[in-house]
Design a protein around this nucleic acid. Structure first.
Ligand SMILES: Cc1cc2nc3c(=O)[nH]c(=O)nc-3n(C[C@H](O)[C@H](O)[C@H](O)COP(=O)(O)OP(=O)(O)OC[C@H]3O[C@@H](n4cnc5c(N)ncnc54)[C@H](O)[C@@H]3O)c2cc1C
Length: 478
DNA sequence: TCCCCGTTGAC
DNA sequence: TCAACGGGG
């Protein structure tokens, strides 16, 4: 048994630290690692160039780290998930593997793929071992009184807090190096470049460094600072969490460390931050329990009938393009969209604002915005992105009530009071003071060079009335 | 993880 | 004229 060869299939868990499948495999025998590149599938999932590049650069970092452990990495270059089971099995048989080990993923297509992989391996006499990795607590371990998945966050959070003290959540160490074997590591594909990639250094070492930097003053002040996009109030760890260069247990351990092992509510910096990790957890559980979410359906069935404005209409097309390019005439919305385009990341407060602006004020189908985010985000993640969009569009479970509309000007005054964030991303408005910048006066004569900043593309009162009416129409009609 | 609008009462 | 507040969406 100890010499039996173990195949560890890496997916969205590109690290060697705290890796359940890798750690267990190393205990069981000689480890061979594999990664499957499926560009056509990734494209179908709406990944953008930046996210794809980030994944591949993290793969390169993983390869290096595995080399220090004498673990060879095989790379299968395919197109889709459909080809994966056969190709992976061939690899396994070629190298006389006795066990396949991998960490679970929760999206529908990924689940289907993994089920097929498991079947072909089992019927070829290769054992399959699956591990919980992305979730702190295994799915299904937290259920409502009725034995169902939670669809409301607050009770989920309460149960989660109850379960925390007895859960085994210590990060696993990196496995010991193994004796060098005969198998060789495959060459990497050419690594794509992207202008924003330098903002997101690949690999677990960079991720841990950021976690460390965050886990002091900033974590303590998180609850006070996290809503102000001009501050460095949040961790910016989402890209590494999304590709698994960092584990959620490593994050939790850091938070527990600064809060002396205790998290009892979300009224402290660490407690509040952990509650955000649990939101991630909540959305992953939802995606697993409700497969329709992976297939573009709304959580609330009646909201499928919302009368979104048609993209065949050229005015609607122009509104969409204005939103996408940061030219809506609402400064904080535009600054946020330009942050997304330039960096591949956007502050949470602004994701909520821009998502609500598109789906509510412009009354454009949230799925269009969801796809656009996925195309540009470096941390693009189906569960969290879909969860966030359905939250903002009020089509989700435990979403914002449809009438609780953000006003882009009030949000701007509240959360960017000095206008620093706007000034940073909209140079054409940089001359305006903290009072004027939220709602710039018309600069007809181009005295300040801001005449090319657009006028608001929509009247807020009209937009508000329109979206309220749209939601209210759901009640009366069948 | 909200905003709007009408009312009230102090000036 | 304006802050404070409550109801409603
Ligand atoms: C419309 C919309 C789309 C979103 N799309 C994504 C996405 O594609 N990928 C993604 O990772 N997050 C997404 N989020 C959630 C959230 O905005 C980001 O996780 C967060 O902004 C990342 O920044 P951070 O790492 O500094 O977060 P921190 O505040 O430091 O939080 C720590 C971690 O907790 C998790 N987290 C925080 N807030 C949330 C949340 N509201 N929901 C789920 N997880 C959360 C993230 O993994 C994050 O890295 C979306 C939110 C909205 C409203």
């Amino acid at each position: 048994m100890t010499n039996a060869r173990q195949l560890v299939w890496f997916r969205s868990d590109l690290r060697t630290l705290d890796h359940p499948a890798l750690y267990q495999a190393r205990q069981q025998g000689e480890v061979l690692a594999a990664f499957v590149i499926t560009p056509a599938q990734w494209q179908q999932h709406g990944w953008g160039a930046l996210k794809t590049a980030f994944v591949l650069h993290n793969l390169a970092a993983l390869q290096q780290q595995l080399q220090t452990l004498n673990i060879p990495l095989k790379i299968l270059q395919l197109q889709t998930f459909a080809e994966t089971p056969a190709a992976l099995l061939q690899l396994a048989q070629q190298h006389q593997v006795s066990n396949l080990l991998f960490n679970d993923e929760y999206e529908w297509n990924e689940q289907q793929r993994d089920q097929q992989v498991e079947q072909v391996f089992l019927s070829s006499g290769i054992a399959v071992q699956r591990f919980t990795d992305q979730l702190l607590l295994p799915p299904g371990s937290l259920l409502t009184g009725k034995g169902e998945a939670y669809s409301v966050f607050t009770p989920f959070w309460r149960r989660w807090l109850q379960a925390l003290p007895t859960a085994k959540l210590h990060p696993l160490p990196e496995p010991q190096p193994q004796h060098p074997g005969q198998l060789t590591t495959d060459p990497l594909p050419v690594l794509p470049q992207h202008p924003a990639l330098h903002l997101w250094p690949a690999g677990q070492a960079a991720a841990l460094q950021r976690l460390q930097d965050f886990s002091g003053q900033r974590l303590m002040a998180y609850q006070q600072q996290r809503d102000f996009p001009a501050l460095d109030g949040t961790s910016s760890l989402s890209p590494w969490l999304a590709v698994g260069a960092l584990s959620v247990r490593q994050c939790l351990a850091a938070a527990l460390h600064v809060s002396h092992g205790q998290i009892s509510d979300k009224n402290t910096g660490p407690g509040c931050w952990v509650s955000e990790l649990v939101w991630r957890e909540f959305y992953r559980n939802l995606l697993l329990a409700f497969p329709r979410l992976s297939r573009g359906r709304t959580f609330k069935p009646e909201t499928e009938r919302l009368p979104w404005r048609s993209l065949n209409n050229s005015k609607v097309q122009r509104d969409l393009q204005a939103w996408q390019s940061g030219q809506t005439g609402f400064p904080l919305v535009d600054a946020a969209m330009r942050q997304l385009l330039a960096t591949g990341w956007m502050h949470n407060r602004l994701r909520m604002l821009t998502a609500m602006f598109l789906s509510k004020h412009l009354l454009i189908d949230w799925r269009v915005g969801e796809a656009f985010f996925m195309q540009h985000l470096v941390d693009g993640d189906l569960a969290s992105n879909n969860g966030g969009w359905q939250w903002a569009a009020s089509t989700g479970t435990d979403a914002v009530p449809y009438f609780r509309l953000f006003n882009p000007y009030s949000q701007s005054q509240k959360f960017d009071p000095q206008g620093d964030f706007i000034r940073n991303w909209l140079p054409e408005l940089a001359h305006l003071d903290h009072k004027a910048i939220h709602q710039p006066p018309v600069d007809k004569m181009d005295l300040f060079g801001s005449s090319n900043y657009p006028q608001p593309i929509v009247d807020l009162k009209m937009a508000r009335d329109r979206v309220m009416a749209a939601f209210e129409s759901l009640r009366s009609s069948p």
